[in-house]
Design a protein around this nucleic acid. Structure first.
Lengths: 237, 237
DNA sequence: AATACAATACAACTAAAATACAAATTTACA
DNA sequence: TGTAAATTTGTATTTTAGTTGTATTGTATT
């Protein structure tokens, strides 16, 4: 196997952060002094300072010269629900992520789907409707179309695991995903499946995923629960 | 172990790539040093470097002189640039990008704005409403709140140019922007200002921008024209 | 002759620790 | 109430080890 590690100061920063969150520290509450933190984590004070600097820049804490370092009341909800890349929509931080396959069928695609997948008239596709939950609560509804030709041995079992891992193992080389983010109003069906109470606007990500050679292997529509799943973006200058 | 068809460095590059994916390495994690990789794959360091160079050009990893080589979290960052670099994008594609300042006033902020900016009760803020157009057509409406204390000499003239350039020139160090992308239904006022005909859902980006000492210097809401401005995202594996 | 790869040496840079001291704030005590 | 001492963050410098960057030379293969 392989070792990938975070820089020490980054590890310390993460520890401090999780400690703050775990302790549910409130606005203005002081965190241990730099010297104490250095002792606690058995690193030098310089490393602690570097870690602290990161958290200051994130807005989680602030420090006062000669006094101490304190938790910001206005802690920016930070990368908890951060939009992750491809597969790992919900990282390990989440509680009990689970999948529920609502539909799985081999069908004749509509013309628009055929166009998206760039396939011929007589080719069939899998249609998969999958609900993704965290803590038993529905978060994401995904509709996915996959050409039968490419994945003749697709099964419900596979889809309960990671779809992309399966594709990787088949020797395909996933390359890019072209997506379009659109705001929509949920249909009644969608509202029912995501347990939405009111017809508020929500986000839909429409995407095509390709292999190295340009083959489009998936067309999908992903619907995000408007309250429970928000899109936090962090950009750096 | 190695095939003979592909160049060795290309094979090594592929191997590193799959290892990174297999390990589910996250943003900022360090991969083994070039020397170690050379040992692991039993090739010379030069070959490793060449492989690494390929992956760097792909954007999968980046290396820091004297420090190490790290996995880049570029998966999302590309998206963000699309959101952020609006003027640049437009100036390339469309003609005549322009700004129109609809409102510019020094006011007492509401409590929610005060909280976002993390300022006291008696501090005033600038409120700026700006319309951004391409070819004379409104595309984006931006509402921005800036603490008066930080920018006592802000003017309409400045805002017609690049706001961030102005801030840069003042010697401030812009660091990060934390944003939240939300779908909304436009108000009547918003519909009028963006020349919208129907009350379709649209996107709103709510953001706080910070200096590198954590000071929040701007709270803004940006509304995107739902038809003329769509969000294309490209993510790579 | 050109290309791909290996081997080697060294330069430039970084992370982290260790240390010392300055500056601001808090605390203790007269 | 003042004032000095203690505490805490801010800044600077030095050292050590480790990593990437670069240049050069050698060696097969085509």
């Amino acid at each position: 196997m392989w070792e990938t590690t975070l820089p020490l100061y980054q590890q310390v920063a993460n520890k401090i952060k999780t400690d703050i969150i775990a302790n549910d520290a409130r606005d203005g509450e002081a965190i241990p002094t730099e010297t104490k933190l250095a002792e606690m984590y058995e690193v030098s004070r310089v490393t602690v300072r570097r870690a602290v600097k990161i958290l200051i820049e994130e807005g989680l804490i602030y420090s006062v010269h000669g006094s101490g370092t304190y938790v910001s009341g206005k802690k920016i909800e930070h990368d908890i629900y951060k939009l992750q890349g491809f597969t790992e929509e919900m990282s390990g931080l989440h509680n009990n992520p689970s999948n529920e396959i609502l539909e799985f069928q081999l069908t004749v695609p509509s013309e628009s789907v055929r166009e998206y997948l760039n396939i011929g008239e007589n080719q069939k596709v899998y249609y998969v409707k999958r609900l993704r939950l965290a803590d038993g609560q529905p978060l994401i509804l995904e509709e996915s179309y996959l050409p039968f030709e490419l994945f003749p041995d697709l099964s419900v079992d596979v889809l309960k695991q990671s779809k992309y891992e399966f594709i990787d193992q088949k020797g395909f080389n996933i390359s890019k995903r072209y997506a379009d983010l659109k705001p929509i109003l949920p249909s009644d069906e969608l509202m029912a499946q995501l347990h939405l109470e009111t017809k508020d606007p929500m986000l839909c990500l429409e995407a095509c995923a390709t292999f190295d050679d340009g083959t489009i292997f998936e067309y999908s529509k992903v619907y995000y629960h408007p309250i429970k799943y928000t899109f936090k973006l962090v950009s750096e200058k």
